[in-house]
Nucleic acid binder design. Structure first.
Lengths: 264, 264
DNA sequence: CATCCTTATTGATCCAGATTATAAAAATGA
DNA sequence: TCATTTTTATAATCTGGATCAATAAGGATG
């Protein structure tokens, strides 16, 4: 893999509060279960290194075996597949707080490649180490399941996008999805965000040609639903946009751990 | 929900061997981890009832909260979403051995509906009970993650189908996927299987119109790749079909439990 | 500051696949 | 058993979005 690895420096500097808030994976995990300080420590113990990956480098290559999990701290990536005829389909966009290697590492061989869309920093964890953690702290296995389910739910919406939504609807849906996922880890304002993807990437995600995606984007602007300056996207009429896109946010409830223990 | 429930009769009749082989969920779980007799028993303890659902009944309704897991023993279903304009997108087909409620129950409210495509029998398990089981036996939490990852991998292929594959390629891919998933739980011959879905369902899965799906099917037959009599599909030229579809089987490796314990 | 490369924008043509319509065959159920 | 509904099959028309092409506008790089 094209990464520069450096040993995991578990800096204990910085107030502890910051750690809970600044690590996007912790933010997402804590939406699902309560995490204690010991939990945090055993999670850290399992991280073997922190790495940086440069823009345009592949994080994962299709067809290769890979038994690592990458927790994305910063930066963006795209999971994609190249077809024989040269076409590319982007399966999903990877944002901070996501885990790369989730479907991939669980299979014999990765089913898709993942390319860094910006410079990234991520934490590496061996699959066996994480499985070990799950055995000691079943909580983490459940978090993994829940995150996988969230991801599946996003994939499902993507299938609907590409299968039955019109181009405008698809694009509106993509923008809303990205916005809500960024917001989940504190990377978006209420009505605006920085879109880290080019029109080409979005067209490859939505199964459209670049010119048509461009036209569709222009259409959304003309209708006054969004505004764009540079990378900044502003949502001008969220209600209309959501209606157009058939958008409903994907939010998972908490893992019913205490209830389970009560039953137990 | 439109099901007729009867209390779970844990019949201990029949040789034990049969149970391992006849329950499709056990078959799939055992592809991932070793299961002991006590494991089997604690799994059973968590099943609260067995139910039958009639053809065309909805198992899950979009937008409703639902905190049950359904382990499919027999029969087929389709996970779908209806759009405002009346179009339907089928997100995936549910086969014996699958768990329904996986993304659904983990979210606040189900994101799609699931309709029974044939009469079905399934086992019901409360989400909290299963979470409890995972706490006592972390193994099951991992199985859940792995199954979710497999499902996500299938969804990813489906996105590629609908986004960038041509109609023939899509259809070829769908047929191969169904065949391999059926084979996984012992419901298909090496080169033939019973297709439980109508052309309308397949067109709704692949984002095509019914007439065009029909033509495409005719095309595959004309090319001598498959043969169809009634519901029976025969794969005449598997190599060519796989090439056409860019098909690569999704098979997950085993969960590295022993390795994890060694590290531990 | 000049050049190169990536990204965005716009226009013209054309075809794959949707849509609509109709009929035959098969499954369902009363 | 026959009537009704589903499911398959096929043909004719029409259109949305791909494709091809060309340009403009940024951004990076030396």
């Amino acid at each position: 893999m094209n990464v520069s690895v450096r040993p995991s420096t578990t800096r204990v500097s910085g107030a502890l509060k910051d750690i809970w808030r600044s690590d996007p994976f912790l933010i997402r995990a804590r939406q699902l279960v309560d995490l204690t300080l010991p939990d945090l420590q055993s999670l850290r113990a399992v991280i073997e290194a922190e790495a940086t990956v440069k823009r345009r480098r592949d994080l994962v290559l299709e067809g290769y075996e890979c038994s690592k999990l990458y927790f994305i701290k910063e930066g963006f990536a795209a999971r994609y597949k190249l077809l024989r005829n040269g076409k590319r389909q982007i399966v999903n966009f990877v944002l901070p707080g996501d885990i790369v290697g989730m479907p991939g590492s669980f299979l014999d061989r990765a089913a898709n490649s993942v390319i860094a869309v910006s410079d990234m920093t991520l934490q590496i964890c061996a699959l066996e180490a994480f499985v070990g953690l799950c055995c000691r702290q079943p909580k983490f296995g459940l978090v993994l399941s829940w995150l996988a389910a969230q991801e599946a739910a996003h994939y499902a919406e993507h299938i609907i996008d590409v299968g039955r939504r019109t181009p405008v609807e698809r694009l509106a849906h993509l923008l809303l999805e990205i916005h809500s996922r960024l917001a989940l880890v504190g990377l978006a304002d209420e009505f605006a965000f920085n879109l880290p993807f080019t029109q080409e990437m979005m067209s490859d995600a939505l199964g459209l040609s670049v010119p048509h995606l461009n036209r569709t984007l222009a259409h959304l602007r003309a209708e006054g639903l969004i505004a764009i300056n540079g990378r900044r996207v502003e949502i001008l009429d969220r209600k209309a946009l959501e209606l157009l896109a058939h958008f409903q946010p994907i939010q998972s409830g908490r893992i019913p751990l205490s209830e389970a223990l009560a039953v137990n």
